[in-house]
Design a protein around this nucleic acid. Structure first.
Lengths: 253, 253
DNA sequence: AGCCGCTTGTGAAGACACGCACAAAGTTGC
DNA sequence: GCAACTTTGTGCGTGTCTTCACAAGCGGCT
């Protein structure tokens, strides 16, 4: 919280990390491009233009090119991007070449599903540790991984070099679990519990809030309803004006 | 896509919908405030200041007040907000008073978890219809709801007045399912499949992409790694500069 | 070999969101 | 009834993200 926005401390000049500083919003989209590139590669394509890739991923072509420019990608003008090298460059930029090790805490309904979710393993994020507090769950295997007791978090995370933690516990348990992950050295956490986690500044938390997603949709349903009524009852009849946010977003744009 | 950003068409003057036009980002946060208000109400609190509510939800107090101002909320200066009325106002603004009916398509790993997810029912989003294409799943009950075949989407959605659809199918099946939901009159869709859905302009799609979330975290892990190395190897030793985005965000901010 | 058409990379303008800081408004205490 | 304190509501400067539009560069065709 209140992460000090880097108080004008620009360290002499870039040189360090990826290139300069990639905007959060761009990082999210880069991940989407990467997945699409994999798909295209599987289909045997060799090159792709910003236009094509943009349409396939649902973004503006100019935005896509700017995103790619952050990682210093070089396409060839007049042709497009070669898929193989671009894919490689994206994987490197997104940290896919260093194998990440993921721990998942909370093997309830949602956690169980996430543990078995092919989308993770398939894209290079092996879940290597599972934890729960329920004695009935501790000891069972899911996808070949044994569920350990939450109290083992420090030991197991250290042993398996966990770098990313997923919290899929009920709300009240989340903060405690989070503290344990942090003290085990985990610096990146994906939180599905509907609470705001308190963490030190150097820890990054992303929150996925399913109930909020539904509520956002409900809001637009209600808005549409009101608009429709308004134009039916009183007004001109200028047509409902299919305005609609269609925000492929949330994560993206 | 390319939703025309309302080409300066300001319809004479507001009057219609909620008040004027609530920014997307604010809507997401309003949903969070609402949940916290419910929690506070349960604990017996009567009033809450913007400061308290802001801390509890992890946002800036000024931002919170501005968000509330969009729905025309009136707190009392010197005191704060009365929880009960504010909660009511939020529920109305977010479309919680009109009962929404949710259909979930794809009762695999993830879908099964979502169907049983308490976070939905608990906040007024009853899942009233389940669909799958797998004959082994069609007919079973989850939380008292019978899984129907995907081909029944039009009939069942009409009968149960479904307004929101959740797609939790594998990627390749998503577009087809989406088309069916749209033709059944569903105008708001929450998509967990890793594909970009093509929909008419008046349909709103929100995408939740779990693999992308992990990839974003992995990016920051890699960045930290590089920074740490850079400062260990060559440089001054000015300290790693615990910069770190901590973007409680994704959905929110 | 030179020209033409296509596609990239990016400067600059616009839109949006954030957060400060302060006036307005209410409450409590004397 | 007045003064001091508290907290809301919001105008405005700032920074970030998005989008347009165009120059620069590359390949293919004649």
């Amino acid at each position: 919280m209140t992460a000090p926005p880097d108080p004008a401390q620009g360290p002499a000049e870039g040189a360090t990390a990826t290139r300069r500083a990639i905007p959060e919003a761009s990082v999210a989209r880069l991940a989407v491009y990467l997945r699409m590139l994999r798909e295209l590669a599987e289909q045997g394509a060799e090159t792709v233009s910003s236009e094509e890739l943009a349409v396939a991923t649902g973004v503006n072509p100019a935005k896509l090119r700017k995103d790619l420019s952050y990682i210093g990608s070089y396409g060839t003008r007049g042709v497009g991007y070669e898929i193989a090298p671009l894919r490689h460059q994206l994987e490197e930029a997104l940290g896919q070449n260093h194998a990440q090790s993921v721990a998942l805490v909370g093997v309830g309904n949602l956690g169980h599903a996430l543990a078995g979710y092919g989308g993770f393993a398939g894209t290079g994020f092996p879940v290597t540790a599972l934890f729960d507090i329920d004695p009935d769950l501790v000891g069972i295997r899911i996808n070949g991984i044994v569920v350990e007791h939450v109290r083992e978090i420090p030991r197991v995370c250290a042993e398996r070099k966990v770098t990313i933690g997923i919290i899929a516990t009920p709300g009240p348990a989340a903060q405690g679990v989070c503290d344990q992950l942090v003290s085990a050295g985990v610096r990146s956490i994906l939180n599905f519990a509907p609470v705001v986690l308190q963490v030190p500044d150097e820890v990054e938390v992303r929150k996925v809030d399913l109930a909020v997603e539904l509520q956002i949709l409900a809001f637009h349903v209600a808005r549409r309803h009101l608009e429709a009524n308004a134009s039916t009852e009183a007004n001109t009849g200028a047509g409902v004006n299919g305005h609609t946010v269609n925000g492929t977003g949330g994560l993206l744009q």
